[in-house]
């Protein structure tokens, strides 16, 4: 009897709940370690640049295609509702606001979570499985600095740049559709676009993208760094990195909406 009681007591609430909070604590420790190590020399500039290239340039084809299509489709689908009120001329303004405020950052972040997050998770997990991280550690170099700090920084810097690029491509897609249907010139289209955007729209979009980038980087690295051993762990880490990053991105989107609305005084 007594023995069974002891065994029951090896968790606080229930095993699953305990594990959730332990994981949460680990995540915060991981993030804290990032902020400590990012400021302590030596800095791995070259590796940051290499990662920026990996994250930025390698995602361009996919993002170009997606952004352009989103621009065309969204414009096309919005037209009927506006024309009911005879307000087609508002189309560029509506699209500009929708793309810059929400769709650009969201589409970019979700695609990057799939493409960048999974590859970060898989790469770091496979380095862990094959003891490459241990090898760095015993050769007196800091694997956290070389692997995690560089990737998180690169993701944090590159996602906002990619978001601006996707905004632009999506607006070009929208222009193609508007130009075909309402024969508006490129200049007239972009004058209307920029007239409709406020300073707050642009800055909040950039800040939000920075947070998305940080999330994608840190989640990918965390899942890779804490993957279980064995090849199965690699696949799981990649998968978990994507799922967790996407989930967090939606939560952050929701929070940022509340905050921006509050600032705007709505």
């Amino acid at each position: 009897m007594a023995k069974i009681k002891v065994e029951e007591k090896d968790h606080l609430i229930s095993k699953k709940v305990d594990k959730f909070f332990l994981d949460l604590a680990n995540v915060f420790r991981f993030i804290k370690r990032f902020f400590v190590e990012v400021f302590v020399p030596p800095y791995e500039f070259q590796e940051v640049l290499r990662q920026c290239y990996q994250i930025g340039v390698k995602s361009l084809p996919l993002l170009s295609l997606t952004g352009f299509i989103v621009g065309i489709v969204f414009t096309n689908q919005s037209r009927p509702s506006l024309s009911e009120f005879g307000a087609e001329s508002w189309l560029p303004a509506l699209i500009a606001i929708a793309i810059v405020r929400a769709m650009g950052p969201l589409v970019t972040a979700l695609i990057a979570a799939g493409k960048v997050g999974s590859s970060i998770g898989a790469e770091i997990a496979s380095m862990k499985v094959s003891e490459q991280i241990d090898a760095m550690e015993v050769s007196a170099t800091n694997p956290f600095k070389f692997l995690v700090v560089t990737r998180v920084l690169a993701a944090t810097f590159m996602i906002p740049i990619l978001v601006m690029y996707v905004d632009f491509v999506a607006l070009m897609g929208a222009f193609v559709n508007v130009n075909q249907n309402e024969s508006v010139s490129l200049i007239a289209f972009f004058v209307q676009v920029f007239d409709s955007l406020t300073f707050l729209d642009v800055t909040s979009s950039i800040v939000k993208s920075l947070i998305f980038g940080f999330t994608i980087g840190i989640v990918g690295c965390y899942k890779g760094y804490h993957s279980s051993k064995g090849t199965e762990g690699v696949g799981k880490a990649a998968n978990a990195a994507v799922v967790a990053a996407m989930f967090l991105i939606f939560i952050e989107e929701l929070l940022s909406l509340q905050i921006v609305n509050f600032i705007r005084g709505v």
Binding site: M127, S130, A135
Partner: peptide, 10 residues
């Protein structure tokens, strides 16, 4: 430390 599985940075 030379690892059993070499652990080269691939």
């Amino acid at each position: 430390f030379s690892f059993q599985n070499s652990a080269l940075y691939d």
